[in-house]
Design a protein around this nucleic acid. Structure first.
Lengths: 194, 194, 194, 194
DNA sequence: AATGAATGAGACTTCATTCAT
DNA sequence: AATGAATGAAGTCTCATTCAT
């Protein structure tokens, strides 16, 4: 069953190699080699090299995280922490993808758009988690701002993790707690008049 | 005045082109062309193409921002806002540089390190501004966390600004205010005896 | 019949050109030109230029001479003369090869070894012919010395023939006869009891 | 006094490098480097690269060997042995020269002629030594043949010594003795009537 | 459907040579 | 006299892409 089709193997090889060395620096011949297929087959399935990149973006896994799996109502800090743990896991599980998206975003609009989409998804996800954990007692603007801030910080953290030797994202608990406290203090302040 | 030396023109051309299309996708011949010099001269000054990249990183402007120029003690939100305005200006003024650093960080460790350096500088800068504006009445950990969060968010904002049509960084005031408030509320809470 | 495969034509062209102008002085483009193939094909078959040289040495014809074809027992001088005539014919028939070997021996160890091999073959061949023509009545040491001397002289004669306008080896009969006589006198002296 | 002029240092560097890597494979810049002179100076003294080769051949040391220094009348084998020892010493003392001459003889007629000259000198030298050691009792033809044979063998021996790791010429005493005996036997046979 | 031989444009780089100083 | 910046021709090699089978 792990006997992937040749086409699939080509795509995986391309993903790895584009992530390792970049699109331009990767010859199609090396893709064929790593996929263990004859050179001609790469161009048989993907006439031009850029078609490979497009196909790679198309098959982007849509691994949504379900807010419910990390949210504990009333425990904002914990919920955010669990969210980030989960995000980190996804990130580590598809490093090639992440490398690829960041690397080629500048020159391939297809990729750029995919990257932007993912960021928007992330913002919405953080938003949901905050709302789910803190209840509806927060000002909409505050939630928006916190979500934006956190999504950016998490994205940046992953983006720079790519650059480190072991691809492991940096410590982040302090920042998370700080943010959770900031929001929580708003809740209290927003509700004494109740 | 714009009569730069040939060597300088080559570097500028390389910076632009590497930023536009990436290192690999930029032929040295196009660099020579844009710099208006014969092809041989490029390799006379920079034996291999990668030497160009190294030179580009070496001459990285060290445009430090002086905290004092944006800090107004007591006005944290305003100070941060002025800081970001200034950072955005620097960013817009050297777009090529920023593109270059992010694009090539994955494959050229010189570049990667330069990018990491710049990030650390940014963290320290934000730190100084917060301390300068809020006085010494904040917990060290809070300042650290807020600085990290903000530096990451600002970096990410610039990194993704590269991907937009007009290179303009996204709106950010809301996030800034939120963060300033978060910190300010700590000050008050930390000094209830006042 | 002369419709050789492209690969074969490339090798022949390379052999000729390397012999004419030397390895370094021969552009691969000129090889392609003379072989009547597109430039890319040369590097398709032989990734690097030096692979061409290696291939050339590999396909070195192993044109052994069968001692029996020149030996007439009892006629040492005649046998040696027939041997040299035959060696000269081989030499003239593959001039390119000979040029090539001597020219590039200094810088390419593959070639150097091939040249050394050929010399050893030659020594053994001369040895066989002497023994075959003179019978077993000669001292081993004498045969060894004479073989070495003659093999060296013949090699040198071919090596310098390359340098002459018409590639024709110099007259050599006198030397041959002298050597045959030298050996023959030993036979008589070794068997005075006859 | 070892403070050679720049021009002299350039020539020596060229001789070494041409011998090591060949004429074509040696950039003039490397000659300048090894000579410790600025690049421009090489072409200041020798406008074209080939002028260097010509100059090198022009200044060829004419290290003639005086027959009297090795000849002991009556001792032919010893005389030849001493001659070869002396020739080997000259050879080892100017290896660069020898490499150079053999390497570039194929493509530069100036060099080719110099090499041929040296060979003729050698033939005459051997001739003188034989005559000196054996007296006038040998047939002219025999002396000619033996000289040619020996000169060729010695030349070949040096030519192939270049190809060995340590540039040391191979053992040769057996061959020499054999040749001396061959000649000596003629003397005896030629003079029984005395 | 699949393959790998074949192609040619073009990339990087080297280098002899010129020339202004 | 001496230098090293500058030039451009040319060399080796890579590679996406095509095509006959």
């Amino acid at each position: 069953m792990t006997e992937d089709s040749a086409k699939e193997r080509i795509l995986s090889a391309a993903e790895e190699l584009f992530a390792e060395s970049g699109f331009e620096a990767t010859p199609t011949s090396r893709i064929a080699e790593r996929a263990g297929v004859p050179k001609g087959l790469v161009h048989y399935y993907f006439r031009r090299k850029s078609d490979l990149l497009a196909a790679l973006v198309d098959r982007l896994p849509d691994e949504q995280i379900e807010p419910a799996t990390v949210v504990v109502p009333g425990d904002l800090a914990g919920s955010l922490r669990r969210l980030v743990v989960e995000l980190d896991r996804r990130f580590t599980g598809s490093l090639g993808l992440s490398h690829l998206l960041w690397r080629e975003a500048d020159t391939h609009h297809v990729v750029r758009e995919a990257l932007a989409d993912r960021f928007q998804q992330l913002v919405r996800l953080v938003h949901s988690v905050i709302v789910g954990a803190a209840g509806g007692r927060l000002a909409v603007a505050d939630v928006d701002n916190a979500s934006g801030l956190l999504a950016r910080a998490v994205s940046h953290r992953h983006a720079t993790a790519r650059h480190s030797r072991d691809d492991r994202p940096a410590e982040f608990d302090g920042e998370l707690t700080f943010l959770a406290n900031a929001l929580s203090s708003k809740v209290r302040k927003a509700a004494p008049a109740d």
